[in-house]
């Protein structure tokens, strides 16, 4: 099989290089310069601006009290929202991929909702529900509960925007794997939990990890929805992305870029882990599932 695929790619490469050399070079220069101009350069400039006034200013900007508070809040938000979405995502993906029920299509559509709604609208939605003039506003005030302009509101908004990441990552993977192993487990006497724990989850663990990483990156980087419900109280409800904007608006460019560089670093780390996980996942998948997956795609009962 590998021999065959190797040959295919070589054939394709030959086809591609049949173009005149100038076409090849033009395309290469074009895509490379685009890549450098729009991806590498801005990223480098963030670090460049951050360090423009030297390491001392850089360290001071990220260890200053309000910056530290913003970093801690951002991490806290991620610690709360990511596990919740992990549990939800696994449950939803398991339901959708391994079971048939009424309204399944509807649930699948709803999971995608956060991707299609603008984050600012998400913030305003929560404002309408929990704000002082919202549906539960007066009740919340009476009971001295704070949702909007406090940590709970930021968590809610973050959960909403990161909702689909884990589920979206798992559903296609679980569907591709089919239900054969689960059915075998049930036949052998496993109950629902055992099936989930010993069969389903181990099969999707790399996909799961990937979903969690994406979800985490988005949770830490979310701006729009959080900015509406935050109230922007320094040291209290200011997350890192909001802190960057405020510093920038205060002409405090070095500090703004210093905090931004932390977010950029987070993105880079995410990228590295993602590449590693993808690599693991594909080798894992190839080793244990290539054959059953192939059979699945041939059989008439694929995936509903």
């Amino acid at each position: 099989m590998s021999h065959y695929s190797h040959k295919t790619t070589r054939f394709e490469r030959n086809l591609a290089t049949r173009e005149a050399p100038w076409v090849k070079w033009t395309l290469l220069t074009l895509s490379l310069s685009f890549f450098v101009l729009f991806l590498i350069l801005p990223l480098v400039s963030v670090f460049f601006e951050a360090l423009r006034k030297g390491w001392e200013v850089y360290l001071l900007s990220i260890t200053e009290e309000t910056a530290l508070a913003a970093i801690k809040l951002t991490v806290l938000i991620a610690i709360i929202s990511v596990p919740l979405n992990l549990v939800f995502g696994v449950a939803a993906a398991w339901l959708i991929a391994k079971h048939d029920f009424r309204g399944k299509q509807l649930l699948t559509t709803f999971i995608d909702l956060p991707f299609s709604v603008s984050p600012v609208i998400v913030g305003l939605m929560y404002m309408l529900v929990f704000g002082a003039n919202g549906w539960f506003g007066s009740w919340l005030v009476e009971h001295d509960l704070k949702v909007i302009f406090a940590v709970p509101g930021i968590v809610l908004a973050t959960i909403f925007v990161t909702f689909p990441f884990v589920a979206r990552e798992l559903i296609p993977l679980m569907q591709a794997q089919g239900r054969d192993e689960e059915e075998a487990a049930v036949v052998l006497g496993a109950n629902g939990w055992q099936t989930l724990w010993y069969v389903t989850l181990p099969n999707v663990k790399w996909g799961l990890l990937y979903g969690v990483i994406l979800s985490n990156a988005r949770a830490m980087g979310e701006f729009g929805a959080v900015s509406v419900v935050s109230g922007k109280i320094r040291g209290q409800t200011n997350t890192m992305p909001l802190h960057v904007e405020i510093l920038y608006n205060e002409y405090n460019f070095a500090a703004a870029f210093a905090v931004a560089s932390l977010l950029a670093l987070l993105a880079l780390v995410t990228l590295v882990i993602k590449t590693r996980v993808e690599h693991r996942a594909s080798s894992h998948f190839n080793a244990s599932h290539m054959v059953p997956a192939d059979i699945n795609t041939l059989s008439p009962r694929v995936v509903p």
Partner: peptide
Amino acid sequence: RSVIDGLE
């Protein structure tokens, strides 16, 4: 607007 919406 935020104060109207409940910022304390």
